[in-house]
Computed example of a mutant assay.
Amino acid sequence: MDDETKNHAKFLILYHLIFVCKCRKKRLMRSGDETKRIFEVIATQSDVSFETMEVDKDHIHCLVKSEPRIAPLAIVRRLKQESTLQLWQMYEDELRRHFWKERTFWSDGYFCRTVGDASQGTRRQYIEDQG
């Protein structure tokens, strides 16, 4: 993977992100592929890209490539907010049975780690082996 060049700067910023379904509900078994598609669309509108992404029963692993001007929290917020809205539009009847108190999908927290010591290939393989 090569460094990005933009506005007199060279950079390569990769984040390993993990999002967990609210209450560890096994919701991604049914909507995992759709969630990945939604994340891809959001990324194209947000100046980020996914190097790899994989879903498990109740969480999703992402290797996100970003620019220095975009904070990891901004990436997380946008992915979680927009995907929740779209998933509720598609699966409202089903989600209402599981999340009857509020229109939610993801847990409040998230995991974020910069890819530093481990090689990018090692991280990519780890994420692809999930699920």
Score class of each variant (00 low, 15 high):
residue 87 L to G: 11
residue 36 K to Q: 10
residue 84 T to S: 11
residue 16 H to G: 01
residue 28 L to Q: 02
residue 50 F to K: 12
residue 37 R to M: 10
residue 15 Y to W: 07
residue 53 M to R: 07
residue 30 R to G: 01
residue 9 A to V: 05
residue 94 E to K: 07
residue 66 S to A: 15
residue 12 L to P: 01
residue 129 D to P: 03
residue 120 Q to N: 08
residue 101 K to H: 15
residue 28 L to I: 01
residue 21 C to K: 04
residue 11 F to V: 07
residue 113 R to N: 08
residue 49 S to Y: 05
residue 49 S to G: 14
residue 124 R to K: 12
residue 9 A to P: 02
residue 34 E to H: 05
residue 5 T to E: 15
residue 117 D to I: 06
residue 118 A to E: 11
residue 63 L to K: 02
residue 112 C to D: 11
residue 32 G to N: 02
residue 121 G to Y: 03
residue 83 S to Q: 04
residue 118 A to Y: 04
residue 57 K to H: 09
residue 33 D to A: 07
residue 29 M to A: 06
residue 18 I to R: 06
residue 49 S to L: 07
residue 87 L to F: 06
residue 64 V to I: 14
residue 106 W to G: 13
residue 112 C to S: 10
residue 20 V to W: 00
residue 62 C to Q: 12
residue 96 R to N: 07
residue 41 V to S: 14
residue 87 L to S: 11
residue 100 W to G: 04
residue 130 Q to I: 04
residue 9 A to T: 11
residue 122 T to G: 05
residue 60 I to R: 10
residue 38 I to L: 14
residue 24 R to Q: 07
residue 99 F to D: 10
residue 25 K to S: 06
residue 66 S to G: 04
residue 59 H to L: 08
residue 31 S to A: 06
residue 1 M to T: 13
residue 3 D to M: 14
residue 120 Q to G: 08
residue 25 K to G: 01
residue 28 L to V: 01
residue 8 H to R: 15
residue 131 G to H: 00
residue 110 Y to K: 05
residue 36 K to F: 03
residue 46 S to G: 04
residue 25 K to C: 03
residue 26 K to Q: 08
residue 62 C to K: 05
residue 34 E to C: 08
residue 36 K to P: 05
residue 74 A to I: 00
residue 79 L to N: 10
residue 129 D to C: 04
residue 30 R to C: 02
residue 50 F to V: 15
residue 30 R to T: 02
residue 118 A to S: 11
residue 54 E to F: 00
residue 20 V to F: 01
residue 44 T to C: 14
residue 16 H to N: 07
residue 27 R to M: 07
residue 92 E to N: 09
residue 1 M to H: 13
residue 70 I to Q: 03
residue 85 L to W: 01
residue 100 W to Q: 00
residue 112 C to A: 13
residue 34 E to R: 13
residue 83 S to C: 06
residue 100 W to Y: 14
residue 43 A to G: 15
residue 19 F to G: 09
residue 127 I to V: 13
residue 114 T to S: 13
residue 22 K to W: 02
residue 37 R to K: 15
residue 62 C to F: 03
residue 103 R to M: 15
residue 109 G to E: 03
residue 78 R to K: 15
residue 86 Q to S: 12
residue 107 S to M: 04
residue 68 P to K: 08
residue 21 C to F: 00
residue 109 G to A: 06
residue 31 S to V: 03
residue 81 Q to Y: 11
residue 120 Q to F: 07
residue 86 Q to D: 06
residue 107 S to T: 11
residue 88 W to M: 06
residue 95 L to T: 10
residue 111 F to L: 05
residue 104 T to S: 11
residue 125 Q to C: 01
residue 40 E to C: 12
residue 80 K to A: 07
residue 50 F to W: 10
residue 17 L to W: 00
residue 47 D to H: 15
residue 82 E to S: 14
residue 73 L to K: 12
residue 19 F to C: 09
residue 53 M to I: 15
residue 113 R to G: 08
residue 28 L to H: 04
residue 1 M to W: 08
residue 94 E to F: 07
residue 110 Y to W: 04
residue 71 A to L: 11
residue 97 R to I: 04
residue 101 K to G: 14
residue 100 W to P: 02
residue 14 L to T: 01
residue 85 L to M: 10
residue 101 K to C: 09
residue 119 S to N: 06
residue 84 T to H: 10
residue 97 R to M: 10
residue 69 R to M: 10
